[in-house]
Design a protein around this nucleic acid. Structure first.
Lengths: 206, 206, 206, 206
DNA sequence: CTATAACCGAGACGGTACGTCAGGTCTTCGC
DNA sequence: GCGAAGACCTGACGTACCGTCTCGGTTATAG
């Protein structure tokens, strides 16, 4: 059905395994080469040929398993991200969000993490990639931070009438905006300011 | 000594006008052709050659005045945007922000306005473009909506201890995030939910 | 280590045949297209893009195997010339040279043969081409007409003290000069006049 | 009638002097710049823009008076050549031709003189240039060396039944051929060999 | 243990667009 | 109204990658 099975080739049922199996060496060589290149260059500047050469692999092998370089990068980055997201549990929802946001900011502005904003960029011109990015990357991470919200609601630290997407986007949206547009600073202090404002709201104390 | 003066060649003072002057017909033909193409295609899919052909102009003429198609699009879009941003004044800061956000969302998801997210994408791989984008596009618009904030503070509808960037990013950040990632809906109702949450804060009513 | 092996890639020994092999269809399509174009246009007016389009081939394929259009034309023309040079054998060296010169003139002034003078022109601005032209074209043809000289010497119809290059250039030089400069007619009658004068010399009969 | 009057603008009669007159400074600056460039670069590598810049002149000024760079070079070279051709007079036609040929070879292989073969090359792709080249350059020089032939005939050193063009082309053709094709050496010794062979003819001494 | 199948590297291929260069034309100004 | 300056359109340049397509060869299962 799908031309590029990507990772989902997992469930190729039982049979159907005649012929030489996919070389896991090639696969990992490709992903590692991609990670290596991503630390030096922007995704835009990387070419399939660079990856192929750097991995010691034929271009065909790459095209066989991924439709384009963005998907390769997405899977490569997925490896790096396998280490679970740190979800603090301090007892205070505001404090949890603040610490989480700070660590996310630190990562997204790092040499490795800056690929994240390039993925968002790629989404603007490739709907299929956008879909994969949400499914494999964005939603899992939202599911992880969701527990902060849940605990906050349970502890009555967060208004239960506000839906979760709104809460999360109010926390992370400003960070994303600054990350992409660079119109305002992005650091630990700003992070706590954002979270504080989100919890208190703009309305002046009465 | 910028190589590509773009529009800022304004003040080349008095002298220095020997030779055939820049043809304003060519310039506007290029910008109009770009706008026309942007309504049909994504920025990524537009080529300098398409613009040149569509404008009845030589490629060289384009390269002479803009470093790449993103800059052309930025200037072209600037024309379209010259019409002032609508800044409502209802007496309520929350209501003003809400209406403003709704109209911005409507525009950014329209055929013409979707270029905005592509500009943000472009920023991720071209620092010089990012700088221009902020200077010519983002900051002017922020200056415009800033008056809502100012009025809100004056009317004591907005906490004066929260700095303006935080306020604006809490309003617009979630919209930008959803616009780019598409992980949650983006419409008038969502807009009012976001603004309401931002004003009230997450903390439950006591 | 020549960058452009041209035809001489003959002896690449045994190994070194990994990868998709060179397509002989493309090669011959290119050469045939070039010949076709050369019958309609001067070499100067032919572009690589014309050849590529006319051969249904990518430009890269041409650049991969030849450094520029002159080399393509040289190889294409070489094919046409593969048919052996006619070397008459009438018993008289003078008569042999005369007939040979006449047939050469006829060819060099024909639609196909006029490329010869364009090759000589190209030699003036490309030393590498000049070298190839001599090696692949000029010397083989000289080797062919050389036998007329040899038979003439053997039959004592040609003074053995005059070296061969001088003999050949006295026969063919005037033709070349007129071909290129066009300052005097060039036909069968002139050919026999030249050959006759070369054999008799300028000195009046005593 | 002619679009590019070239030199013939000399006789623009008397009147006709409305407007700013042609700047002789510009003209000579152009020609001198061209000569200067020709000593460093091949004609093929020189551009009108180089000449214009090097002469401190607009491109238009050049195009106004010459159709292309070859014509500029032809006129520029004409200046250099104004110094008369050396026509020796030793009493022997063979000796005269020999010395003349030697000096011509010396010049045509010099830094300045090598432009000659580039003119011949240009003739192959520009008929109008070829015509001008013959008229202004080739024929005058032939007229000059013609006197050697005439004296030779008068002194009965040259067979009067051989027409002049044949004589001259037998002398100069081999030199031209070698100059252009480079298949054989070209020096004083070769020159005398060629002239000697031309006078004696190939036929063995009886 | 042989046949069949899918994989793999290398690299040539037809293309598209790039950004540059020079050609020849035009438009403005100063002299 | 000439001539410089230089912007303009045109078209070809040679290059970089694209994604596809052979090749020769390898590595597994199936029979």
């Amino acid at each position: 059905m799908r031309k590029h099975p990507g990772k989902s080739r997992v469930l190729t049922s039982v049979a159907e395994k005649r012929g030489r199996p996919r070389s896991s060496e090639s696969t990992s060589a490709i992903l590692e080469a991609t990670l290596r290149l991503l630390k030096e260059h922007a995704l835009r500047d990387i070419t399939i040929e660079m990856i192929a050469k750097s991995a010691g692999v034929g271009k065909t092998t790459i095209y066989k398993w991924w439709p384009n370089k963005a998907f390769v990068a997405l899977e490569a980055f997925g490896l790096e991200m396998r280490r679970d997201v740190l979800i603090p549990d301090t007892g205070s929802a505001e404090r949890d969000f603040c610490e989480q946001l700070q660590s996310v900011i630190k990562f997204y502005t790092s040499k490795t993490g800056r690929i994240f904003s390039q993925f968002l960029a790629e989404c603007q011109s490739d709907a299929e990639f956008a879909s994969q990015f949400r499914e494999r990357f964005l939603l899992p991470r939202r599911a992880a931070v969701q527990v902060i919200w849940q605990r906050g609601v349970a502890r009555k630290q967060i208004d239960r009438t506000i839906d979760m997407d709104t809460v999360l986007d109010l926390i992370y949206g400003p960070m994303i905006f600054r990350l992409l547009a660079g119109h305002a600073p992005l650091n630990a202090k700003e992070a706590s300011g954002i979270v504080a404002a989100a919890f208190r709201g703009f309305s002046p104390r009465s």
